[in-house]
């Protein structure tokens, strides 16, 4: 039986029209997420991950942002045609987002309790006392004593603030949670705690999750599926096993080869040569072609997403050639 589809995106294009030129942030992105599944959106800084997430909430700043999409549905409802008030209803209720930097994500002049309760009061027509009570419960849920609801963000540490942000995002039990590098700004020990908390809550509420990160370790820990983004496109997508064990795209390979190997500390790191292409001036065809060790003439043409298996897709035309494979550096 096919599971309920929470999110479906077809051909998402986002560009920023600035005075210095048009920045092509997202260039034709397709994505489907089923109920309760979690997908890791992986890529370098500037690959368009955050922009993709913001366009799901229709929060891309306009101007200069222009969002075009064939289909953007949230549990069957068309987000693109929603009115402003419908959108406000969806945000925080059906779809929530956790932002990267907990230090700046909370409003410094309101208590954390107020900030959690605000979300509850907007979406569930409850009294302010009730909202306050629920806010305290949410705090307890993320591991903060409820009586701290009356305190202000500056009285909390970074990890605690991120817990508050998570509490805000989950206050109305959203169907889809987008976490934009939720642990990047935190200490390593705190990172593990926060990730653990997120995994627990996700299972408890059967929330679907989009985890945006450049840290493959986090993906391995929390995600069912992985989508690798490069220059505004998904270049490889599959289950965790597909990507981690049978990576096909040269870029994905490069990502894995850039991770230090703790078993062989003398082994040389093989970073990907060069830099991301200028998003105001993307090359035709495969955007990775200028940096790709396997590039050939055919790569200069538009690349289609090829199916490798039931779950595994890759955007690399060299797999049309028989016998083509990439070298994966041995880790063990």
């Amino acid at each position: 039986m096919e599971k309920e589809l929470i999110l479906e995106i077809k051909d998402l294009v986002v560009r920023f029209e600035t005075a210095d030129g048009v920045v092509h942030a997202v260039n034709g992105l397709d994505l489907k997420i089923e109920k309760g599944r979690s997908i890791g959106l992986v890529g370098e800084t500037g690959a368009g991950k955050t922009t993709t997430a913001l366009s799901m909430l229709r929060l891309v700043p306009d101007p200069p942002g222009v969002v075009e999409c064939e289909k953007l549905e949230l549990s069957g409802r068309d987000v693109l045609s929603m009115s402003v008030s419908e959108l406000e209803e969806v945000r925080g209720k059906d779809i929530s987002m956790i932002f990267q930097d907990p230090m700046t994500a909370l409003n410094p002049v309101f208590t954390v309790g107020e900030q959690i309760a605000e979300s509850i009061q907007i979406h569930e027509k409850v009294s302010s006392q009730e909202a306050e009570k629920r806010a305290k419960e949410m705090l307890e849920l993320v591991g903060i004593p409820g009586e701290r609801a009356g305190e202000y963000p500056h009285q909390f540490s970074g990890g605690m603030k991120q817990r508050v942000v998570i509490a805000i995002a989950l206050a109305c039990h959203p169907k889809l949670l987008i976490a934009d590098e939720p642990t990047t700004a935190l200490d390593v020990t705190i990172q593990a705690q926060v990730l653990d908390l997120m995994r627990r809550l996700k299972e408890q509420y059967e929330t679907s999750l989009i985890m945006i990160t450049h840290d493959l370790g986090i993906v391995a820990e929390i995600c069912d599926d992985v989508a690798v983004m490069y220059a505004g496109k998904i270049i490889e997508i599959g289950t965790l096993r597909d990507i981690f064990n049978k990576a096909k795209h040269p870029y994905t390979e490069g990502l894995f080869n850039s991770i230090p190997n703790i078993h062989d500390r003398k082994a040389k790191l093989t970073p990907i040569q060069g830099l991301m292409p200028d998003p105001t001036n993307l090359p035709e065809g495969c955007a990775f072609e200028p940096r790709c060790p396997y590039a050939c003439e055919g790569c200069k043409k538009e690349q289609a997403l090829l199916q490798i298996s039931d779950t595994h897709f890759v955007r690399c035309s060299r797999y049309l050639e028989e016998g083509f494979h990439i070298e994966r550096k041995e880790k063990e």
């Binding site: 402003v84 406000e88 209803e89 932002f99 409003n107 410094p108 002049v109 309101f110 907007i122």
Partner: peptide, 26 residues
């Protein structure tokens, strides 16, 4: 352009309230 206004918008706070309540207070 502060992040916490984006947080407020992502919660579903209306634009009017984002400006008058969250931004102005700061």
């Amino acid at each position: 352009h502060q992040d916490y206004l984006r947080t407020a918008r992502a919660k579903g706070v209306s634009e009017k309230k984002v400006i008058r309540h969250h931004a102005l207070r700061n």
